[in-house]
C-alpha cells in the first residue's frame, strides 16, 4: 500500500504557451493534513483542479487512492469524485436551499437513505460543526461568512469522503473566526482519520498553516520548491521560503 493518498507523476499543464504546472513529482501523505502554499499564480488552484479531475493534465498522471483519475471516462470520474469532500473559498452553498437542505443534498442524490435517516445525519453533521437547529433552516444569505464555511464543511462531510479539500477556507474571515474554522478543520480531520481521511488545504495563511498542518508543499511558478513536514519547513534555508516565513 502506498503511503500517499494522492500522487503526481511527471505532471505538467500548459495553457497555450504558458506552463502552469511544470513536471511535478510528489505525493500527499495519507491520513495527514497537507497544506499547499504559495504566492498567487503559483499553480495551487490548478493543482487542486487536477486532483478533482476538473482539469486534465497536458502530460503525466494524477493518482488518487491508487487510481489514475486522468484515465477515467466521464461517468467513472463522476462516480470517483464521491471520494472527495470540498469546502470552497466562499462556501459555494446552493443559495436556493437552506443549510439543512444543502447538507441533505448529496445524501438525497447519492444514497438510498430515507428522510428520517437523512434528517438524523444532517442534524448530527450540522451540530458537529457548531450550527444550531435554528440556523439549520436559514438560507445561506442569512448566515455569516464563518457559518457558511461551517455548513460547507458539513456538506463536504455528508458522504464520508476519504479526501477533504479546502480552497482558501478562511478567505474573508476575521482572525478569530479564521482560527475557529481551522480548529474545526483539525477536529474534523482527527475525528475521521480512523476510517482513512486525508486533508488538503490550499492557503496563503502561513501562520495558520504552521500551526495546523502536518506537511507543507510550497509552490512557485508551477513547481514544487519544498515538500516538508512542518518542523523541517520552519528550518528551511530556501530563500523563497525564508521570505514567505518572514511576511
Amino acid at each position: 500500500m502506498s503511503e500517499f493518498s494522492i500522487e503526481f507523476k511527471d505532471l505538467s499543464k500548459l495553457y497555450g504557451q504558458a506552463t502552469i504546472l511544470n513536471n511535478l513529482n510528489f505525493g500527499i501523505h495519507k491520513n495527514k493534513i497537507t497544506t499547499i502554499l504559495g504566492f498567487s499564480g503559483a499553480g495551487k488552484t490548478t493543482l487542486m483542479k487536477h486532483i478533482l479531475g476538473l482539469t486534465m493534465p497536458t502530460s503525466g498522471d494524477v493518482i488518487v487512492l491508487g487510481t489514475a483519475i486522468n484515465k477515467l471516462d466521464e461517468l467513472a470520474l463522476r462516480e470517483f469524485r464521491r471520494n472527495f469532500g470540498m469546502v470552497f473559498q466562499y462556501a459555494a452553498l446552493f443559495d436556493f436551499l437552506t443549510s439543512f437542505e444543502n447538507v441533505a443534498f448529496p445524501l438525497r442524490e447519492f444514497t438510498k437513505m430515507n428522510e428520517e435517516q437523512i434528517k438524523d445525519k444532517v442534524l448530527n453533521l450540522l451540530d458537529s460543526v457548531g450550527i444550531s437547529l435554528e440556523a439549520a433552516y436559514r438560507l445561506p444569505s442569512e448566515l455569516s461568512g464563518g457559518m457558511r464555511k461551517r455548513v460547507g464543511l458539513a456538506r463536504g462531510l455528508a458522504l464520508d469522503p476519504h479526501i477533504m479539500l479546502y480552497d482558501e477556507p478562511t478567505s474573508g474571515l476575521d482572525p478569530i473566526t479564521t482560527h475557529m474554522v481551522y480548529d474545526l478543520m483539525r477536529d474534523t480531520h482527527y475525528n475521521n482519520v480512523h476510517h482513512g481521511f486525508t486533508s488538503v488545504i490550499i492557503s496563503h495563511d502561513i501562520h495558520a498553516t504552521l500551526k495546523y498542518s502536518d506537511y507543507i508543499v510550497f509552490m512557485e511558478k508551477g513547481q514544487v520548491v519544498e515538500h516538508l513536514d512542518v518542523e523541517s519547513f520552519k528550518k528551511s534555508a530556501n530563500p523563497v521560503i525564508r521570505r514567505f516565513l518572514e511576511l
Binding site: L52, L54, R78, E79, F80, R81, R82, F84, M86, F88, Q89, Y90, A92, L93, F94, D95, F105, P106, E109, F110, L159
Partner: peptide, 18 residues
C-alpha cells in the same frame, strides 16, 4: 450565471453531478 460566478456549479461537479 449567478451559480457559475459563486462556484455553485463547481460544487455540483465536485459532488459528481453533471
Amino acid at each position: 450565471g449567478t451559480m457559475k460566478v459563486t462556484e455553485q456549479i463547481d460544487a455540483l461537479e465536485v459532488m459528481g453531478i453533471n
